[in-house]
Every structure is written in C-alpha cells, then in structure tokens.
Amino acid sequence: MKNQQFGNWQSTVLGIVLATLVLLGLNSFIIINPGQAGVISILGGARDGALLEGIHAKPPFISVIDVYDLTVQKFEVPAESSTKDLQNLSARFAINFRLDPIKVVEVRRKQGTLANIVSKIIAPQTQEAFKIAAARRTVEEAITKRSELKEDFDEALGDRLDKYGIIVLDTSVVDLAFSPEFARAVEEKQIAEQRAQRAVYVAREAEQEAQADVNRAKGRAEAQRLLAETLKAQGGQLVLQKEAIEAWKSGGAQMPKVLVMGGDSKSGVPFIFNLGNVQNQP
C-alpha cells in the first residue's frame, strides 16, 4: 500500500516537473515573423537591440515582448494652414510609412503603440509640415502648382519624422480645399478672363475685316487704273460705252424693252431708249 502511494506521489511530482519544464520552455523563447521586430522588456525596462525575425530566447515570466509591424502602414491625416496671401487652405494627406527596425526600441520607449505613433507623432508633424509648405506660396499657387506644394511637404515631413524612427515612403494629396470666398473670386476671375479673351477675338476679327476691305479697295483701284490705261489707249470711246453699259445694268437690264442704236464703231455713246415709249406714241 505504501509502495503504491509512493508511486502515485512520484508520478504527480514528475508530472508537475514536466509541466513546469514545458511552461518554462514556452516562456523562454519567442518567434518573430518576417516583417516584424520585437522589443524585450525585463521587469518593465526595455532592453537595447531589437529582436528581428527568427527564434529568440527570453527570461521566462519576468519578460514581456512587444512586437511591431515593420511593413508599410497607411493613414490619412487632415491638415489646415494659411497661405502666403493669408487664405485658409485645408488638405487631407495619405501617408505611407514604416518603422525603422534599428530605432524600434526607441519607438517603444518614447511612443509606445502604433496608435500613439499616429496620433502623437505623425498627425501633429503632418500639420506642421503642411504649414511650412503652404506658407511659401499663395492659395492660387498652391492649387496650380500642386506638385511643388507636395514636394515641399514631403521634404518637411520626412525630416521631422526621421528623428522619431519613422520612415516616410510616399505621400499623396487626397483632397485640397480652399475657402468659399476664394472660390467665388476664382470664378469671377475666370469669367473676366473669358470676357477679355472674347474682346480680343472680336478686335482681331474687326482688324482682319478692315484689312480685307483695304485689300479689296486696293484691288479695285488697281483694276480701275489698268482699265483707265486700256481705255486711254482706245481713244476714250470705250469709257463712254462702259459707262452706258453700267447704267443699263443698274437700271434693271430689261433687254426686250431696250434698243441700242449706233452708227459706226467710232461714233459716241450708244443710244438707249425704251421701245415701249415709241410704241405708245400716236
């Protein structure tokens, strides 16, 4: 009976020892997956040196491992600022970033969780970087030269976040808005520019028409000069005949009612009269 009890006691002790060993084993190692970094804290103090991907030993029960995602993170952050001409300008930026694995221990000590990094570091630094970029240009320049605004913003934000162990990979302007007063001013300016362009077009059209009239007048004068020279060579008779023909055309050119009488070719003006008047005489 005593041997049986002793055997049960030994089995219990062995089971406890095995369970303790298993528990110690599970708490003595940590696996860090690719794209992650771990920070080990012993009795509340973070140790230097980040734990990168792989298996790492750790003191059981008295240590805690904080795992950080090193892959690309994306957050949209709003920002507002005044431009060089004191106009209100608001924007929303999409920021792609990741944590620097070399500085992840410093991030753990100063910022803590990823949520704290976004709310306490990225958001306020985005605001400050946008103020720097917006203050360098007017609101119209901020809109028309959007790429230059983004370049200044990226440079300012990258410099500010780098010291916090945050690497900015890319940013994009999701939205850029200005005050309603400026919107009305832009609309009025566009209308005025359209009217000015229309006025210039009308003036050019009138100028071209006037030039065309001048060219036509010059053409007619040249034609008349040539005609006068020709008629002068004919002794002047063709001048009178031409004038009679022109008068006939301007009068309606009713050929059946007109009789042209003339003697020889050297006589003067052809005689033109209405045959109806002759027929009505007694």
Rank of each mutant, 00 (worst) to 15 (best):
T126R: 00
G158V: 03
R160K: 15
A221V: 09
Q241T: 12
A228C: 08
G263K: 08
R195I: 15
D162N: 11
A221Q: 11
R98V: 05
V22W: 09
A91H: 02
Q10L: 15
K218L: 15
V186P: 05
L23R: 01
Q254E: 15
K163G: 07
A192L: 10
F130A: 01
P59Q: 07
A223Y: 09
V258E: 02
L169F: 03
V269H: 08
F61H: 08
R137H: 11
I143T: 00
R109H: 10
L99T: 01
Q234R: 10
E246I: 12
D162Y: 12
E181S: 08
I102T: 12
V186M: 14
V67E: 01
G252F: 08
R184M: 09
D48R: 08
T138C: 07
P256D: 15
Q211M: 10
L21W: 11
T171E: 05
Q5V: 13
L99E: 01
G15T: 15
A123M: 10
R216L: 10
F178Q: 02
L169Q: 15
R195G: 05
F271E: 08
A91Y: 04
R204N: 13
E207I: 05
V13E: 09
L157D: 05
G219F: 12
G235M: 07
Q4D: 14
S41G: 00
V13K: 06
N33V: 07
I121G: 04
A94S: 13
K84G: 08
D159S: 13
Q87P: 01
A142E: 00
F61K: 05
H56S: 04
P78H: 06
I121L: 12
A223C: 05
R184G: 05
S147M: 04
Q127C: 07
Q237V: 13
N88A: 09
V39E: 01
M1Q: 07
V64M: 07
Q208H: 08
I191F: 11
L14G: 09
G15R: 07
A134D: 00
V173D: 02
F271N: 08
A203D: 11
L86Q: 13
P124L: 02
N8H: 12
I167V: 14
I95S: 00
F271D: 06
P78W: 04
Q211V: 11
I31M: 03
I117D: 03
K218H: 12
K84D: 04
G38H: 02
E106G: 10
R108S: 01
